[in-house]
């Protein structure tokens, strides 16, 4: 009966102060001793005391507290749900009603959620970096191009002039030399022809000797013919390294006449190439056609008219000089470690 003493003091207070008090009051009202209840519930008196005193933290996990409260309420015929709700409301903090395991889990789940976002952010960053790198790469050639275009725009006249001035085309030089010779008067011919005849065409001299024509007139008659052919030969021979002797000046004059015609085209998309050391060259035009795909020997010169963009590759970057639309292109800082050069001209 000592049990009924203490509760009475408690029940003198507000009966709704806690689930423990409410249960205790109901038990006392039914005249049920604590020991009897403990026997019915198969629980120790200590646990029931903890329940009645609202010391729920003494019981290991909330699931047990709830279970005990529920069966206690059932025995004393109180509304189970009402008691449970009050317990949840007043004695459990936060939504997850689980003890140690639950709290740990809740924290872990949060950090895992963060991990998931981290993964997505990293993925996004990598994509952005890749995109940026690709953009930079695709930007690089067009940047040099715009530079070219800018310099071209800055001085369009030199570009037009530049086309004929640098290395005149060998074929043109030869042609010009021949025409010049053809135009020269016959009287001059022997004098001019004599030199080449003597020095460069000894076999012809011997042939003339063996013909037995010793008379001067006959020789002079023959001379113009030879003079015509000899410079012809000389011009073509010299064609490889034009620029010496008489051929140069005529060439310079002669080009003045044919150039105006191709000049507009040249100013457009002409590529000139001078090879100073043997190099492999691979030049492709916009349609992917191989315009040059060969080993170029030192001293070779090339001129191309091609539709941009032109893709160029040289095996020996130091052995090539490029002129694109009349502007020399500096290859020095494009030469890679293996001596190769790749460049796109647009």
């Amino acid at each position: 009966m000592s049990e009924t003493e203490t509760p009475r003091e408690d029940s003198g207070r507000a009966p709704t102060s806690g689930p423990g008090e409410r249960l205790q009051a109901a038990r006392i009202a039914r005249g049920l001793p604590l020991e009897e209840l403990a026997h019915q519930m198969h629980l120790s008196v200590g646990i029931l005391r903890s329940l009645e005193d609202n010391r729920f933290e003494d019981i290991t996990a909330p699931i047990f507290v709830k279970g005990y409260l529920r069966s206690y309420a059932r025995i004393v015929e109180l509304d189970e749900q009402d008691i449970l709700d009050q317990y949840v409301r007043e004695y459990m903090d936060g939504d997850p009603p689980i003890g140690s395991t639950g709290n740990a889990v809740a924290q872990r789940s949060r950090s895992r959620g963060r991990g998931r976002w981290k993964g997505l952010v990293i993925l996004l960053l990598v994509t952005l970096l890749l995109g940026g790198w690709w953009f930079m790469r695709s930007q690089q050639p067009s940047e040099t191009l715009s530079l070219d275009a800018a310099s071209e725009a800055a001085n369009p006249e030199p570009a037009a002039e530049a086309a004929p001035v640098p290395q005149p085309d060998d074929a043109l030089a030869g042609e010009a030399a021949r025409r010049l010779e053809a135009l020269t008067p016959l009287s001059e011919a022997p004098a001019t022809a004599a030199l080449p005849e003597a020095s460069t065409v000894p076999d012809r001299e011997s042939a003339a000797d063996t013909s037995g024509a010793m008379s001067a007139p006959s020789r002079t008659e023959q001379a113009p013919e030879q003079s015509l052919s000899a410079p012809d030969m000389a011009a073509t021979d010299d064609a490889e390294n034009a620029g010496s002797g008489a051929a140069v000046q005529p060439a310079a004059q002669a080009t003045a006449e044919p150039v105006p015609e191709p000049a507009p085209a040249d100013a457009g998309n002409s590529l000139q190439l001078r090879v100073t050391a043997d190099t492999w060259a691979d030049i492709r035009d916009a349609r992917g056609n191989k315009r040059v795909y060969d080993l170029l020997r030192a001293g070779r010169q090339l001129k191309l008219d091609a539709e941009p963009p032109l893709r160029l590759f040289f095996g020996n970057g130091h052995g090539v000089e490029l002129i694109w639309r009349g502007q020399p292109i500096d290859l020095e800082n494009r030469i890679r470690a293996d001596n190769t050069v790749r460049i796109t001209l647009e």
Binding site: H42, K66, G67, R70, G102, V105, R108, R112, G115
Partner: peptide
Amino acid sequence: GLPVIIAEDPLTCVARGGGRVLEMIDE
């Protein structure tokens, strides 16, 4: 002769517990 407690929402206990374990696997 032992106390017996019915878990809250007993039908879903296994699935919920599995979910918690899944969360714990990473850590």
